[in-house]
């Protein structure tokens, strides 16, 4: 019995030493921010760690504004934000556009409307146009669906449309996924989601006659596009710099591209 206890103790001690030793020899990089970019950052981190066993990368969510705050306060080495332009407090950070993401305006597949002008999109979401018949559809009230205040997708979308104030009777959903579900369920709904999330249950409308697809986003023809920023403090650790370099490498950009984002270059 005593021997067992002693043995367990030895094993535990060894385990702890192993763990702490391991922690010391590996360099830690924490990334936090945009929940929209988080799954992509996790993929990048996984791939990077598989080729660089000495580095431990942790990816956290929290939202774009949280990403900027964490990078400023040092809570995370790298902040992620998907905003049209970074707020003034981020000026002291070194920022890098690592990808672009199109925002698709989506409707139910049963909806006759498949094309809107930029002005119509603006008027629908700001509540000036309230009926589908005013934009070439059937005589039904438009159900506008938006993200919650503070969402990076929403603030980018509103800014691209010229700083609109969202229609006050718009429904609010808290993720790209629930917006897609709601639009798929309601024939009269209109919403917006990340371009990578379009599927057969919803229909992306063309804006000013230009479809939301990779080619048009790359050429700069499609207007509803936002950049994804990674930000770090000046003089970040070498491990952090190396990861940022990797994100801009051809290999990482190709991974982002395959996952549904648009390459930065």
């Amino acid at each position: 019995m005593k021997i067992m206890v002693a043995l367990t103790g030895v094993v535990l001690c060894a385990g702890f030493m192993g763990l702490t030793g391991c922690g010391k020899s590996r360099e830690n990089v924490t990334i936090a921010g945009s929940t929209a970019f988080q799954p992509f950052a996790e993929k990048l981190a996984d791939q990077y760690m598989s080729t660089h066993p000495g580095v431990m990368i942790t990816v956290q969510g929290g939202g774009s504004s949280m990403g900027i705050q964490s990078a400023l306060s040092g809570a995370a080495e790298i902040g992620m934000a998907d905003l049209v332009e970074l707020p003034p407090e981020a000026a002291s950070l070194k920022s890098l556009i690592v990808a672009r993401d199109g925002i698709a305006v989506v409707v139910n597949p049963a909806n006759k409307v498949s094309s809107l002008t930029y002005d119509q999109v603006r008027d629908v979401f700001s509540g000036k146009i309230k009926n589908w018949k005013d934009v070439g559809g059937s005589d039904y009230a438009i159900a506008v669906i938006s993200r919650e205040a503070g969402s990076g997708t929403r603030s980018s979308f509103e800014k691209i449309l010229g700083g609109i104030k969202l229609a006050e009777d718009a429904l609010v959903q808290d993720s790209n996924g629930t917006i897609r579900e709601t639009v798929a369920n309601d024939q009269n709904a209109i919403g917006y989601v990340s371009h990578g999330l379009i599927n057969e249950k919803i229909k992306a409308v063309s804006v000013d006659g230009i479809e939301c697809m990779e080619a048009t986003i790359m050429k700069g023809e499609y207007r509803l596009v936002r950049p994804v920023f990674l930000m770090a403090k000046e003089g970040a650790s070498p491990a952090c710099q190396a990861f940022l370099e990797y994100v801009m490498s051809n290999e990482a950009q190709e991974l982002l591209h395959q996952s549904g984002l648009i390459r930065a270059k």
Binding site: T35, S64, S65, M66, S151
Partner: peptide, 12 residues
Amino acid sequence: IALEMANATGMA
């Protein structure tokens, strides 16, 4: 509270 918590900073 639940909807806006994730993105809220400062006054919000």
